[in-house]
Amino acid sequence: MLLTYLSLHLENHALGIWSLDLAARGTVLLYGSAGLHFALALRTVYDRRHQWTLQLAEWVRLWAGLSLPVLLIRRAVAAHLAASLYGFEPDYKKIVVSLTTSGTQGLQLARLAPGCVHNRLVLWIRFRHYPFVRLAKPALIPALVILPSLSAAGFVQMARAVLAANAMLPPTFCVSSC
């Protein structure tokens, strides 16, 4: 389920290479897959409640998966709590503006790492026993880098588009702090 969620989310960012509006249209499936992934993660932890002898790859997968909520909480609170408290309706443009003006666009791009590591390790642990997967491993590694790279490029392009659009706006005047 994380594969679905993360892939859809990264594809949304990658769509930002072409258009911010195109990226905004793809958010519909994200929330359902995020909830389903959380439920599956709880089930996995419950199933392992008596057996915690894991290989290194499984510990790294677990660490990467559990670090994601910690890394995403600030963004989730900023975007979604603001919607319920202040009527702020988050959309791709507003979120990109917020991330860009707050200087956290680097953190946004850094969040790709644990999600992608977790995602790839889940796939490897699940399918490594199949001979075809072992043979295809050298060809799969570059394919695993393409989507996160396109996602990062899409986010950078969306940030450029938002900054360019805001540069064309008339300057606002400082009322309270001037």
Rank of each mutant, 00 (worst) to 15 (best):
Q105C: 03
L29P: 10
R43T: 04
L40F: 08
R49I: 08
P90K: 02
K93P: 00
S84R: 08
A83W: 09
F88L: 12
E89R: 10
T104L: 13
G26P: 02
W63H: 13
F38H: 03
V77I: 06
T27K: 11
K93E: 09
Q51V: 09
Q55C: 12
E58P: 09
S67P: 02
R49Y: 08
L29N: 09
R75C: 04
L68P: 00
I73Q: 05
T104A: 13
S102Y: 00
V77H: 03
Y86W: 15
L72T: 05
L99R: 00
Y46F: 15
T100K: 07
L40H: 06
A41H: 02
A57L: 15
A41C: 08
L66K: 04
L85H: 12
L71I: 10
V28T: 13
V96E: 03
T100C: 03
A34F: 02
V28K: 13
S102I: 00
E58W: 07
Y31Q: 00
A64M: 13
L85V: 15
R48D: 13
S98N: 10
W59P: 05
G32L: 06
H80Y: 14
S102G: 01
F38R: 03
A39S: 08
T27H: 14
W63S: 15
V77E: 03
A57T: 14
K94H: 08
G26R: 05
V77K: 01
K94L: 05
I73W: 06
L29S: 14
S33A: 15
V45H: 07
H80D: 11
T44K: 12
T104E: 15
Y31A: 05
V97M: 00
L36C: 15
K94E: 08
L29V: 11
V97E: 05
Q105V: 05
R61C: 13
L81F: 15
S33T: 15
A57S: 14
V28P: 01
F88Q: 11
L36W: 05
G26E: 04
L66E: 12
V45W: 10
L66R: 01
G26M: 02
G65F: 02
H37A: 15
L99N: 00
V70L: 13
Q105M: 10
S67R: 02
A57N: 14
Q55W: 06
Y31M: 03
L85Q: 11
A39E: 01
S84W: 08
S84K: 02
G26A: 07
D47I: 06
S98T: 10
G32E: 01
F88H: 11
L29Q: 10
W63E: 14
F38K: 04
T101K: 01
L66Q: 09
A41I: 07
R49P: 04
G26S: 08
A76I: 13
I73F: 09
R43I: 10
D91C: 02
P90F: 02
Q105A: 09
L40G: 02
A83R: 08
S98P: 01
L30V: 08
L68E: 07
T53F: 12
R25G: 07
K93D: 04
L85Y: 11
A57R: 13
V45E: 12
V70Q: 02
L30E: 05
P90H: 03
V96R: 01
S33H: 12
I95S: 03
T53V: 15
K94P: 00
T53G: 11
Q105E: 09
Y92W: 09
H37W: 09
V60F: 06
A78F: 06
Q55Y: 04
L72P: 02
A82M: 09
